[in-house]
Design a protein around this nucleic acid. Structure first.
Lengths: 241, 241
DNA sequence: CGGGACATTGAGCGAAGTCAAAATTAGTGG
DNA sequence: CCACTAATTTTGACTTCGCTCAATGTCCCG
């Protein structure tokens, strides 16, 4: 089937310009071929749509090929808690492996594109290759560590600290993707920032205002420019002392 | 070496009374043998001692064979954030896989015993067995989901909600281990509870007092009896409405 | 029996939440 | 392109939950 094979070729990790950022980082040619075999599809996700929703049966992981996502869980009472934001090269859906159904929802904050990685095939491939297996384990472990960082933030930081840490974390990830780390366009609303950081939208707004007044960042709606990165770092570390 | 082989026999998962609770749940005899080969050692950890510390090179996962642990991370400024409590049958150390070094510290809250699972051998074994491989993935995914639950708690719950949710979570885990879910002996101090839940020791104490006054739980130091589980559940869900 | 760790309780304060209104922006259709 | 509506954000005033500081109480263990 030439259609299928051309579809495969279209999405091959081995030719993807994200291969230095995504799952295949540093994989051998042979292992890369295995991964190419596992990955079946590239899929657009329009702004507001979900790559997967809580309760969906888990069948695949998703790599963000382009765009920006939020992942969130919802309580029985309907409260949403955003658990993370994901961008280019990052993996979504690991919450579903344990139970076979997703516990979280991943929604696109802008028109995005994802690569579908059927998990059964990824498991098969990673039984063939110790390197690929290790890579899968690493990605999952890093997610565990990332979430621990969020717990650290939610557990003990003040509003200003949280926002500072959040901006720095975003900047760092942008930088890793080759963007200027000082300039960024926030993809999420104030409400989403507040939800993620465990504070109200009003407090987010006021805290941005304070950072602006102090000359640490320039804020123009969703455009943020970090003017004094070291100062922001100090704030994030807990500069009350 | 008969010593070594008897040491192996001592710790064999296939004969462990925790096999229904721990990693080997439902493994075939063959896969169980693979796991037995991977697991090398049982090790005591005295109260206050660490199974591993932040910065330690990662070489193995640990299964709690008996006892109670806390895992915590520490900021550059020295603030500790407890990220979880682990008891019988639960796995420790997955934070280290991603970077090859532990980011967290796991300390025993009482004299405990852990099984050492060298990770390289576990990876080897799980390349042999799809079932074992799946089990490893599940355990890691469940840890991701567990942490998301903590984020939910820290992100939006009030003090009373947090404590109620915490007690219910403990009770549920005790129940899964065959204990009466209403009666429990807390292994951690008020300070550790407060740290985990993102509140001060005073607030923990006051919140316990309130729950006691309302007749929801009986509190005698570290002995807790849940008197009205459904009421506690309501509190945990956000009974402000 | 005394010292130290841990826990409880009280009083006052402050950071952030709530409620409310205004301002700004984005989106839509004529 | 512009007018109009809806959504988002900002700002202000007030309240409150939980933190801080401080004192007291209790248990454990030498």
């Amino acid at each position: 089937m030439s259609t299928a094979s051309s579809s495969r070729a279209q999405v091959a990790c081995s030719h993807c310009n994200l291969r230095e950022l995504c799952l295949p980082v540093g994989l051998s040619a042979e292992d890369m071929a295995r991964l190419d075999d596992a990955i079946s599809e590239r899929r657009p996700v329009l702004r507001g749509a979900a790559a997967f929703s809580a309760g969906d049966r888990f069948t695949a992981l998703f790599a963000v090929r382009a765009g920006f996502f939020k992942t969130s869980i919802t309580t029985a009472e309907g409260r949403e808690q955003i658990t993370g934001f994901q961008t280019t090269g990052e993996l979504l859906g690991m919450d579903g492996i344990g139970t076979g159904a997703h516990s979280a929802t991943a929604s696109a904050l802008e028109d995005s594109q994802i690569c579908v990685i059927p998990f059964a095939e990824l498991e098969d491939a990673s039984r063939q290759s110790a390197e690929l297996q290790r890579r899968v384990h690493r990605v999952m472990s890093r997610e565990i560590v990332r979430e621990q960082g969020v717990m650290l933030m939610l557990g003990g930081m003040r509003a200003e600290q949280r926002l500072a840490a959040f901006l720095l974390s975003l900047a760092k990830r942008l930088q890793a993707r080759g963007f200027a780390p000082a300039d960024m366009l926030l993809r999420m609303s104030r409400e989403e920032i507040g939800n993620y950081l465990g504070m109200t939208i009003e407090t987010v707004s006021r805290t941005f205002a304070k950072l602006r007044k102090d000359g640490v960042v320039a804020v123009d709606h969703r455009e943020i420019r970090i003017l004094r990165p070291d100062e922001l770092q100090t704030l994030a570390s807990g500069a009350s002392c």
